[in-house]
Design a protein around this nucleic acid. Structure first.
Lengths: 183, 183
DNA sequence: TCGCTCATGTAATGGGTTACATGATTCA
DNA sequence: TGAATCATGTAACCCATTACATGAGCGA
């Protein structure tokens, strides 16, 4: 899947692995992230499959850059993927719910600590969706004003994260209360 | 992590790999799932680490059962994990948001199809949380009434899923409307 | 007779993380 | 002087999925 993230960014302009990582970090990381090593490996495989091609740009004083550009085959592969609907439910994995599920009621205090730690984590995440991401979208638009309609979609993705964090916080509060009162 | 799911179930009673799979399917699958082959492999590793031990129960007419029981070391490992708070945000991966993010506004109709397919998937999921899971919790309680306080925690986990699906559906409706009207 | 449930596993592959390895420039 | 940024990659490992392999009993 990372494959499509990389192709997704390369549809706008050629980029290096290093640059791709920083784009991912500042935009898609809340619904798809990757480390540098995985990015380099995936780009290599994409080039073997002829979906991208790279050339070296020599630099002085710092390492040479390997710049990747999408091929026609790559563009076709990306659009194919974009128009294919997802028909299976998303697989969720949440270690907190596991702990809740297997906790014994005697560990009430540990559980409450657990939930309160989560509360502050999700509050941080919510602030990130409300402050950092809109800022990043603005910055991007300032650079490429022709992407105004795309920005609408970026903001839809952002709102999904924002609403998720809001929901999770409400659920945590509700659950903390229940456990305090009833368990 | 599957390790702890298996230990979690084995804390109540000894089980076979096959039985563990059906427990997972009917209870934790919405926040942690696994296929049979992975379960067998993980049980093997757990036995190597002496967190569980197995013995063969011969059967007639059907294959012998390998029954796993948790050891003291296993119990210690599980409680250790249960009381350790999670301090990193959960990593989310959502291919739908990726497609939304990289879609070009020209593909408006494909996008709307995409979102409508998701809508029906999430509606099914919501029904599952509202109907099937409460039923499964009731069945479990009928069999083991002494777990009434545990059931409170199971229901908290269930509500998290229910609220997630509700939120996702509202977000989908909102996003479909925005795209229909503005894009 | 066809498919489901019971019941166990191995092997290959894929996707991703962590550790390792290198090294100049810039800024506090 | 030490940390961050720029810049690239390899190797080992871990977790998970898919395919393969076997086979009896039971109900429609």
């Amino acid at each position: 899947m990372l494959k499509f993230v990389l192709l997704g960014f390369l549809q706008y302009k050629p980029l290096t692995g290093y640059e791709l990582e920083s784009w991912i970090k500042s935009t898609t990381s809340h619904f798809w992230h990757a480390g540098l090593s995985q990015i380099y490996m995936t780009l290599k495989k994409l080039e073997e499959d002829a979906l991208v091609i790279s050339h070296i740009e020599p630099q002085e004083g710092r390492p040479d850059r390997r710049v990747y550009r999408m091929t026609e085959a790559g563009r076709a592969d990306l659009s194919q993927w974009l128009v294919t609907p997802i028909t299976e439910p998303v697989v969720k994995k949440d270690a907190l719910l596991l702990k809740l599920f297997f906790a014994s009621p005697d560990e009430k205090e540990f559980l409450l600590t657990q939930l309160r730690v989560q509360r502050s984590l999700h509050q941080q995440q919510l602030a990130y969706y409300r402050q950092s991401i809109p800022q990043e979208i603005q910055d991007m638009l300032a650079e490429k004003p022709e992407l105004a309609r795309n920005a609408l979609l970026w903001d839809a993705a952002r709102r999904c994260g924002e609403q998720y964090e809001g929901m999770y916080l409400r659920w945590l509060d509700e659950t903390i209360q229940t456990i305090e009162a009833v368990l």
